[in-house]
Design a protein around this nucleic acid. Sequence first.
DNA 1: CGCGTAATTGAAAAGTATCAACACTGGTGG
DNA 2: CCACCAGTGTTGATACTTTTCAATTACGCG
Lengths: 185, 185
Amino acid sequence: MIRVNSNFLDYIQLLEQGNHKTIIQEKEVEAGGVILSQRTKVFSVFVVKSGLAKCFLTEDTGVDFIQEFFGAGEVFGELEVLNNDFSFCTIQAVSKLSYFKIAKKDFLKLLKEDAKFNRLVLQLMATKIRYTALRHSYNQSHALEDKVKRLLKEYPKLLRTISKSDVANYLGISVRSLNRVLKAI
Amino acid sequence: MIRVNSNFLDYIQLLEQGNHKTIIQEKEVEAGGVILSQRTKVFSVFVVKSGLAKCFLTEDTGVDFIQEFFGAGEVFGELEVLNNDFSFCTIQAVSKLSYFKIAKKDFLKLLKEDAKFNRLVLQLMATKIRYTALRHSYNQSHALEDKVKRLLKEYPKLLRTISKSDVANYLGISVRSLNRVLKAI
DNA sequence: CGCGTAATTGAAAAGTATCAACACTGGTGG
DNA sequence: CCACCAGTGTTGATACTTTTCAATTACGCG
């Protein structure tokens, strides 16, 4: 649900303080601000420094599906940069967000020249795949009530941080269903 | 649905014919054979040479959810090797399968020493993430009928290759529902 | 206070699963 | 050649789950 990656954040901050000052920009955006839009070209890779962002796709049906909430250390844009694709999702700040921005060519250069960076990126991508796969599977094979219970157990203060419609979009259900289950629990 | 990666397969075969003969083993298994089991340690990375395998998770409810069907050039085991995790899914041959097997240490060595290999792995992982995310999103936000129609349009001879229960497990629905929709189309 | 956004709820409609029975196919042995 | 079996596919009836729609209510903020 809310993903973080402190290893990666640490390393980025190390690079920033070291001899890579120039290639790692620091930026900020208010809640609601969009950092990356679906179906646009991606020229940079981003790393969350602090705050919370949501990563979602808007389907042709008009429904938003939230892939993931990104907290400190989470990376986005790397997939598109690696495969030279358009962005497949929109990244929007849920709360005030500070983040690092690394230009495509610098990111690719780091990957080539910095073995530790390379390894961290491989691991972070492996984690993303595993996480997404497990979530997808769980979602498909469990009842709504189980999904909601699990989420609340893992993030007790979820509903104070994230709006109901976002939570519903994350679970792939309607707000009405979410309300019914919440009441029943 | 049925994924392939001819770039990667080509490169692996190139390595095999070059000076990496010793680290790339070729193996075979009959339909139904299990190459990797859920929740076991993973000591190698595998690449499909020919044939078809399914990658699925068994949930605590007893339901199988099929992540993906792997065709020529698809890779598995790499996530676990990178993060030193247990396998999160089972890989089972759907038809007679030939595949390459690369020991963990050799895979990691290749990643370090062969820049092209490294890049191909990064790209393949990026593709996996994108693909999984799009599928998850589509699944959550479209009606059953749309899902089935899309699948049949993309793979007209699907039902001659893959059993109904596998197709249903891939879609995360019951066989009954699949049948109903198929009849209605 | 008054406005706009978010949250809540009930009732009806639509979508899916479960279960149990039946059909079809290919293979086996008498 | 037939009877039988196991695996796979098909179907109807029914119950359950989730969405949709529309109407209210609650809440934060200028």
